[in-house]
Design a protein around this nucleic acid. Sequence first.
RNA 1: CGGGGCGUGGUGUAGAGGCCUAACAUGCAACCCUGUCAAGGUUGAGAUCGCGGGUUCGAAUCCCGUCGUCCCCGCCA
Length: 591
Amino acid sequence: MFRSHTCGELRIEHVGANVILSGWVNRRRDHGPLIFIDLRDRYGVTQIVFDQSAASQAHAGASEVRSEYVLQVQGQVVHRTPETVNPDIPTGTIEVQASVITIFNASRTPPLYISKDGGEEESLRLKYRYLDLRRQRMQENMHLRHRAVKYIRDFLDTEGFLEIETPILMKSTPEGARDYLVPSRVHPGQFYALPQSPQQLKQLLMVAGYDRYFQIARCFRDEDQRADRQPEFTQLDLEMSFVDQEDILNLIETLFTQLVTTLTPDKQVPTPFPRLTYTEAINRYGSDKPDIRYGLELVDVSDVLANTPFQVFQNALAQGGQIKGLCVPGGGQYSRKQLDELVLVAQSAGAKGLAWLALANEANTAPRSSFARFVSEEAIATLIARYGAQPGDLVLLVADTATVVANTLSRLRQEFASRLNLADPSVLAFAWVLDFPLVDWNADERRWDSVHHPFTAPQEDDIALMDTDPGKVRARAYDLILNGYELGGGSIRIHQRALQQQAFALLNIDAETAQAQFGHMLEAFEYGAPPHGGIALGIDRLIMLLNNESTIREVMAFPKTQQAADLMMDAPSPVDEKQLHDLHITLRKKK
RNA sequence: CGGGGCGUGGUGUAGAGGCCUAACAUGCAACCCUGUCAAGGUUGAGAUCGCGGGUUCGAAUCCCGUCGUCCCCGCCA
């Protein structure tokens, strides 16, 4: 027997029991004739005492032991005297008087401090991930992730969903993200693609009559990484037949509300989830995934400044742009240098500049401003009123195209939320973003691209616009956002061949190409495809936000670096010539 | 693809032309110590300062290049 109890288990009621514990040496405190060892496993830490006078052989063994050695200890559970109780750990009222020690394995001096958290280069953590994962923080993240996924499975099972696996070796399509490709040995010159999502297969499962499907699906996208993006990640993927948008929104809202309430009860979830249209999100926040835990909303003042001689404003409006801004409470005290730094922030987001109006703390003192001298006092007063600016506030304006204005002010909004600590870390602010456009204009390729994907249904009222004004067509699509992150999105799908072909035509996918790439979908729609729709949600991002982590790497056991490398296994790596030969691959010479 | 940050004993940092024969903390090693829980004390070992080139009488420090890693832009239907 390796152990009778875990290292997190023993309490007062076990006093007197003879126990066996196995685990890692968290810390050793050597007092000579008396040695304390904190023995650790994933359930907790228990203090073991080695007394030379009581068990000399065990004591001798303990003096050989170092951090991260793996041990088994036999001994008796004893009370700690009141003054030696450790209130910081659950097992702190007892300790184990060791009589026998067995050293299963020694350990080199670890490059990470297991019992402390963080500080070192992340690349070191990734190289020694198996040590990093021993740390309490990572164990808690993995544990929460497990419980969240289990909660989702149980919930959807109760709701009648079937979990069905779909292939990892799939077909490449030119739409969307860059594919990870897998060469075929059997079919020279041909390739599988790893799934970016199981999109088509789940729709085909609807055609097959599995009217409530879900999957905890691994997805792969060969694009550059971010703090919230990894080359492979996990989605809750689900699809339902005979439902409308409302059914899906309600299902997910119930799932996440209950999940958070159960698993992270210290978090507040405002319900019902607020709903924004895409247009409203852009207008009010400059982003289709705003963090709505704080205000700093954008206000359009194009009309107020339309007739001012300031060239910057004039030019923007003349070119069909707009003038919008936001009000920073208490920002009126910013120094000229600090304001100049804000201009740089705005420029890094794409704006040519940033106009500012800094109100003095005293109501009667004239404001400082980069543009007031071009603008009438009356207009300034209107501006202040429009923003509800108080003495001591700062109004920032961007004049440019709608896109640049939105991007810049969204960035500034985040900047000030961070500086002023406006985002409450105990709040999970879910929200739905609805009525996305079906397509947007790709100026480079001179064609319409799907905003969501080519199978997204247009809204009934807008179908006629597909021929006349495609940019105005709203999709039956929805995103779920959380604290400024896109948690996921979905749509009601097209289930009729004719409409699907119309959609392909709009996307400039000719009949031949459509047949080659999506023929199976078109054909399936001819065999009784039910109305259906679904959603896909990022599990990694969800767990990250539940535990207030700042990157999804913290909630993945073995993540990759920004260059998509695995530092522990040293992947990717070259392969044998024989393997390449079998796959009919010749490497191009380096230039 | 572009912008920015970081790279110095095992780990985290300091040093910003000569005070560097590289400092501090922690870890590591040895010894002392019977109530610690970040134990304490004494002593000691451990770094050609990511790599390559250049400037200079002299480079951890300045310049160029390169590699790794992180953040952001593009990209991510």
